[in-house]
Write a protein that binds this DNA or RNA. Structure first.
Length: 557
DNA sequence: TAAGTCAGGTTGTCCTATAT
DNA sequence: ATATAGGACAACCTGACTTA
């Protein structure tokens, strides 16, 4: 480096020297001791007002943003500093007056707080010699305090990752719950927008979802596409955390395929608005010369032959489907777990524990069958709901079932006799009597409508199938509850095929949505055998945690 | 043919009712 | 009092149509 590089720094160094020579220490100072420095600019009332409002709404971070003051009787207080209770900062003796030269607006805003107990701040205390011995530097310091700081504003993704790292520390017992809560709140408080605060908080609440988003955010080019407010509102709809976590993982995988072996890529190609992400839309648009995908290897048209997905997560394609799922779950829950559980599920209360989301509820229903073992099976049920959601929704309509709260036992009885998709779904619970409403579930579909003979035949047939698939009711693509969850090969190519296979199911055939569907059609390898792999590959709780340590270590800092 | 305009549809954010 | 979730609304984008 050339000496010129340092020229700019000389003045800054002088400022730091002046300060460090006269810094007495950090103290807690009562507001009644603080007066504005005579050289300070006039107070801007509207600025004080907005600060005060923020203090009221979000809170005050006194230690994160200490003010700077000079104290006339500098040297004499060094010895006097009365220590506060135990390890906290010492309090400045309250007979001393200090002059604030950096942070007077915060002080003034803090004065407007109702409670006397709020009237203090954390201050860097300087002796008055800083002013007499370094008058020029002092003026500059005071001015610099008012300049806009050219800080790099953290993005939602940065905030999310910080929160997620805290979660990881906490879940590995490396910090106490108190430390974890305190630091999370500190980070959230620094977010100005309340919707964003809420959203981020929702997203880190559940391990599975938080982990999947964190791995997506490992890709720098995806970070600008992350919107804490919208993701945190829409993706938690119906509390299908694990399902959404899978969707996020799919999305990440798709993006990885899209960029191919390319090393560096900007975020632009991933910021296409959702309406432009339909297969038809893309087919037309990638032909244009200035399409954002021109960055990709081989150009936009080649990239299209690979894969895609992204802005869709919060688009109507996903959000609408989650709303459907929510509606479906509101019928499955009273049937299996009972009305009180439904009330808890649909009450507008914060997500607290495993009793208020579908996977947790289904686990409780299946408690005896699972024998307390961690199992992916409840999620498998959710996944089957997801696969069949269109049919499930339309059959509700066909058989005149409206809101769950208004549906009587008779209505469900009719539904289970007439609708095969609903019968199939409820069969996954493997109960002859559904405990929620004490409803009998016929062993074979349509048993009541057909002659007894046919029903018997069906029952025998089903039983035989069941034996072959070791107790699985719907033998085609189900995964048994006792089948151990394990990760299949980590080979990227296998993952890709697997991913694409799963995608074929994620999107609704028959809607114009979206690349993935056509993708499935283009890939002959996407068969039922791939589908079958999906559920077991979904990370079990333990696997999720090991993933976490992985991402935490690799994540940028 | 290119530029401009309008309508329709989607998304993201703000507001508010509600339940604890 | 607080937090959630649904609804409303404004901003934005796209594509079709019109005009020079």
């Amino acid at each position: 480096m050339t000496p010129q590089t340092y020229v700019d720094g000389h003045q800054g160094q002088a400022l730091i020297k002046a300060q460090s020579a006269h810094l007495i220490g950090r103290y807690i100072v009562g507001l009644q001791q603080i007066e504005p420095h005579p050289l300070q600019q006039e107070l801007d009332d509207s600025w004080v007002h907005s600060l005060h409002q923020r203090f009221e709404e979000v809170g005050i971070d006194r230690f994160g943003f200490p003010i700077k003051v000079v104290v006339p009787a500098g040297d004499s207080i060094i010895a006097m500093g009365t220590t506060g209770n135990d390890s906290s900062l010492p309090c400045l003796p309250d007979n001393l007056k200090v002059f604030v030269y950096h942070g007077q607006h915060r002080v003034e805003a803090c004065r407007r707080m109702m409670h006397q107990s709020e009237h203090w701040w954390c201050a860097e205390v300087y002796s008055q010699e800083i002013e007499t011995e370094h008058p020029a530097e002092f003026i500059t310091l005071m001015h610099m305090g008012n300049e806009d700081e050219h800080r790099l504003a953290p993005s939602d993704a940065d905030r999310f990752l910080a929160l997620h790292r805290l979660v990881c520390l906490y879940s590995k017992n490396q910090v106490t719950e108190e430390t974890f809560q305190g630091n999370s709140e500190q980070i959230l408080q620094s977010v100005l927008n309340s919707t964003t605060r809420q959203g981020l908080s929702n997203l880190v609440h559940t391990k599975e979802l938080a982990h999947s988003i964190a791995s997506a955010m490992e890709y720098l080019f995806l970070r600008p596409c992350f919107n804490g407010a919208t993701w945190g509102k829409k993706l938690v709809k119906g509390r299908f955390f694990k399902l959404v976590a899978c969707l996020v993982e799919e999305m990440t995988e798709q993006c990885r395929l899209l960029i191919g072996p390319q090393a560096e890529i900007s975020a632009k190609p991933f910021q296409l608005p959702a309406p432009s992400c339909t297969w038809d839309g893309l087919t037309k648009r990638v032909k244009k010369s200035n399409h954002p995908w021109k960055e990709f290897i081989g150009g936009a048209e080649q990239a299209l032959l690979r894969v895609l997905l992204l802005a869709l997560l919060t688009s109507d394609g996903i959000y609408g489907s989650l709303k459907d799922m929510y509606h479906i779950a509101q019928h499955v829950i009273p049937l299996t777990a009972g009305r009180p559980t439904l009330d808890l599920y649909i009450s507008n209360t914060p997500h607290k524990n495993d009793s208020d989301h579908p996977v947790g509820i289904f686990s409780a229903v299946l408690k005896e069958k699972l024998q307390g073992k961690a199992s992916n099976y409840p999620h498998k049920i959710v996944y089957s709901m997801w696969e069949a959601r269109q049919e499930l929704m339309s059959e509700l309509k066909t058989y005149g079932i409206g809101l769950a709260a208004e549906t009587q036992r008779e209505g469900y009885k009719r539904l289970l006799c007439k609708s095969e998709s609903w019968w199939n779904l409820l069969c996954m619970f493997k109960m002859s009597t559904l405990p929620g409403q004490s409803l009998h579930l016929p062993k074979a579909f349509g048993e009541l409508d057909q002659s007894k003979q046919e029903g018997l035949l069906n029952a025998i047939k089903k039983k035989q199938e069941g034996d072959q698939t070791s107790g699985i009711v719907n033998g085609q693509n189900s995964v048994g509850p006792t089948r151990p969850t394990k990760h299949h090969s980590c080979s990227p190519s296998l993952e890709i095929e697997h991913t694409a296979g799963a995608l074929a199911n994620y999107f609704v055939p028959g809607t114009e949505m979206r690349v993935t569907r056509s993708l499935a059609a283009k890939r002959p390898c996407l068969t039922a055998s791939n589908e079958e792999q999906l559920a077991p590959v979904l990370p079990a709780d333990e696997a999720g945690e090991s993933d976490t340590s992985h991402t935490a270590e690799q994540g940028p800092n």
